Amino acid sequence: MAESGGGLRLLMVSDAWTPQVNGVVRTLSTVSALLRRRGDAVEVVGPERFRTVPTPSYPEIRLAVRPRAALARMADAFAPTAVHVATEGPLGWAMRAICLARGWPFTTSFHTKFPEYLHARTGIPPRFAWAVLRRFHESGAGTFAATPSLREELALRGFTKVRAWTRGVDLDLFRPEPRDPWEGLPRPVFLYAGRVAVEKNIETFLRLDLPGSKVVVGDGPQRRALQARFRSAHFAGWRQGEALAAAYAGADVSVFPSRTDTFGLVILEAMACGTPVAAYPVTGPLDVIAGSGAGVLDEDLGRAAKAALECDRARCRAHAERYSWEACAEAFRQQLVPVRS
């Protein structure tokens, strides 16, 4: 992106922001911090600045109520040289409308296969949500997508402005040592890390016939029900920072049962800790794991999990070292578009 003066003034608008804990928040917060470190001014507007209501069936996530007027004032006060609309929630739609009304070009990013999530929760056919998402993103100047298979899928669904933007991993935080021994749990330890929600397909993981122990690190609306039904599994709750890294490193295999994620940052985090990943051969895992020797893909997830026990942990770490947050932030920055040319 061309710029003048002392650097970029980026306004980033996201319905996913702290205190939420998920891959979208982790990506946006990390990229924002790196851009600020290089001298850019970055203003992130999330739901915490507005009156909010809980998301139906997911009260931990709160949605801004009628944010457009206040959001417009915030945008004017900040005077951005670039605008990025990260999500398709109430804040995203409001910022999209503001940009269109003022003739400001903006970029978007595609983080979540929302049509499949909606279908999993409500049964609504995905084609309706895909039409809405296409309308949202096509009005911008570019849609950032993390993997080749996702970009190909979006193109097949009529998205015409898709741009590559991969992800990274904190290699200093996520490392093979120290390891949580998971004391008292029979080995091998198979670990799931992330939100405990229906779209993550965790029940499939918990139903697998595997030796040793199953561990769930995370929380969410499905935890109570799953914990009551699968009493042999160990539910460890949320872990962050060093505690999360030790949880990955102490596991023998990280199981990624989702079929709807667009990347899966937890895949890289586990690999950086030396832990191989078992997953379905779908968008995200296909791009990150296939051919790496750092995990196993199979439509039989149990077979993949058992086979992953044979992966070389040093090779897992080496594969993760190919992904840098610095490169992720720079690619993001270079593809932004100026509000005014």
Rank of each mutant, 00 (worst) to 15 (best):
A2P: 08
S4E: 14
G6C: 08
G7L: 11
G7I: 12
L11H: 12
L11W: 04
V24L: 11
L28F: 12
L35N: 06
L35P: 00
L35W: 08
E48V: 14
R49W: 10
T52P: 07
T52V: 15
P59E: 10
R66L: 15
D76W: 06
F78H: 06
A86K: 02
G89K: 08
G92F: 03
R96Q: 15
C99L: 12
P105W: 07
S109D: 14
L118E: 13
H119T: 07
H119D: 09
G123Q: 01
F128G: 05
V132N: 00
L133T: 01
R134A: 04
R135N: 14
H137W: 10
S139A: 15
A141L: 04
F144D: 07
T147F: 10
S149N: 08
R151N: 07
R151M: 15
L154G: 04
R179F: 04
W182T: 06
E183N: 14
E183H: 07
G184R: 11
Y192I: 02
V196F: 02
E199H: 14
K200M: 12
R207I: 06
V215T: 07
V217K: 00
D219S: 13
R224Y: 08
A228V: 06
H234P: 02
H234Q: 08
A236M: 10
Q240E: 14
Y248R: 02
Y248N: 04
A251I: 03
A251T: 05
V255Y: 00
T260G: 02
I267E: 09
E269T: 03
T275C: 13
A278Y: 03
Y280F: 15
L286C: 12
I289P: 04
G293P: 09
G293E: 08
G302R: 05
A305V: 06
A308P: 08
A308W: 00
L309R: 07
C311Y: 00
R313C: 02
A314H: 11
C316S: 07
H319A: 06
H319R: 07
R322H: 09
R333F: 13
Q334F: 03
